[in-house]
């Protein structure tokens, strides 16, 4: 049976005129951005086309879409639980047979539906790029799957804050700040780790053989960083190795994943973190915390 919360939200979503207006505006902006890029790289002045430039246009569009989704998703998702609370419909939901998990997953699915709509609606614009060539459809499909996983992560963050912050506006703001926080925070964390490592290395406390561990640690930490996430997509599309080059430069080693691309790794991390966030959210909305036997208050 389809998740009832998702089914209901879907019904409401397609009935909401604002969704269609928003969709139109979004497409319009995306089209403008694409047009601008194509103009900037002066596509018509070439004899034929330059596939490299098309790739750049594609990646800029993809990045633009990632960036906009990073802010759109919290805006539509942070109300998921707090909105029910504000509307005084949450109690009615909590007494039903739906588990906390079903409720938060239904809410996340609802916001992913909107993301899906935005992606599908932007397909025609991507089609222009496919028309010029230079971007593979299979690559695009993989990127889209990745974008959905990324949206899942951002959405889970917003759902999570929606369960602990009562006011929707505050939950939205905190979700956005949190994402900006991990963008800056993980960057700083990596620099600190690298600095620390290099100092210890210089002092002779650590040997060079630790460089791989530090490299792994860095990539784990920055895997939650949206900018790194975007770079991993660029790397996979262009066949470059920006991430490893930067990290290996910083710690002077030659660490890399042998069998998997960075964005695969990031996707796995995002899925794990999303599940964890949703589990926590499901716990948060439980009105009565299940007491362990033998633990009494008083």
């Amino acid at each position: 049976m389809l998740n009832p919360v998702f089914r209901k939200d879907m019904r409401v979503l397609f009935r909401n005129i604002k969704v269609y207006i928003g969709l139109a505006v979004y497409l319009f902006v995306l089209l403008g951005v694409t047009n601008l890029i194509l103009k900037m790289i002066n596509i018509n002045n070439y004899n034929g086309f330059n596939p490299e430039y098309i790739m750049i246009a594609y990646l800029v569009m993809f990045g633009f879409q990632m960036l906009t989704l990073t802010f759109i998703i919290p805006a539509v998702t942070a109300s998921s639980i707090s909105g029910e609370r504000e509307r005084q419909t949450l109690d009615f939901l909590l007494v039903t047979r739906m588990s906390g998990w079903d409720i938060v997953v239904g809410k996340l699915m609802s916001s992913l539906l909107l993301v899906g709509l935005l992606i599908v609606a932007s397909m025609p614009i991507y089609a222009i790029l496919f028309y010029y060539g230079g971007v593979s459809v299979s690559g695009f499909i993989l990127n889209t799957v990745f974008l959905l996983i990324y949206s899942c992560f951002v959405g889970s963050i917003a759902v999570f804050f929606s369960t602990i912050i009562k006011k929707t506006a505050a939950a939205t703001a905190v979700s956005n700040l949190f994402i900006i926080g991990i963008t800056i925070g993980t960057g700083i964390a990596v620099l600190i780790i690298v600095g620390f490592y290099n100092t210890l290395l210089g002092a002779g406390t650590l040997s060079q053989s630790w460089s791989r561990v530090v490299g792994a640690l860095c990539i784990i930490i920055c895997s939650t960083n949206p900018v790194v996430c975007f770079i991993s997509v660029v790397d996979s599309q262009v066949g470059s190795n920006v991430l490893w080059t930067v990290i290996n430069d910083l710690i002077e080693t030659d660490f890399s994943f042998q069998y998997l691309q960075v964005w695969h790794f990031i996707a796995v991390i995002y899925i794990i973190l999303s599940v964890l966030l949703l589990k926590l959210s499901a716990r948060n909305i439980l009105p009565v915390k299940r007491k362990k036997q033998g633990k009494h208050t008083g």
Binding site: M1, L2, P4, V5, R7, K8, R11, V12, R15, N16, R87, Q88, T89, D91, F92, L93, V95, T96, R97, M98
Partner: peptide, 27 residues
């Protein structure tokens, strides 16, 4: 079955859809 003292409703739903939604929440 519980009916709270204060409650809200979902605005963009029709009466039967509203009932259908809650039927769904009890699977």
């Amino acid at each position: 079955g519980y009916m709270p003292d204060f409650f809200g409703v979902y605005n963009d739903l029709r009466v039967d859809e509203y009932m259908d939604f809650y039927a769904g929440t009890y699977y």
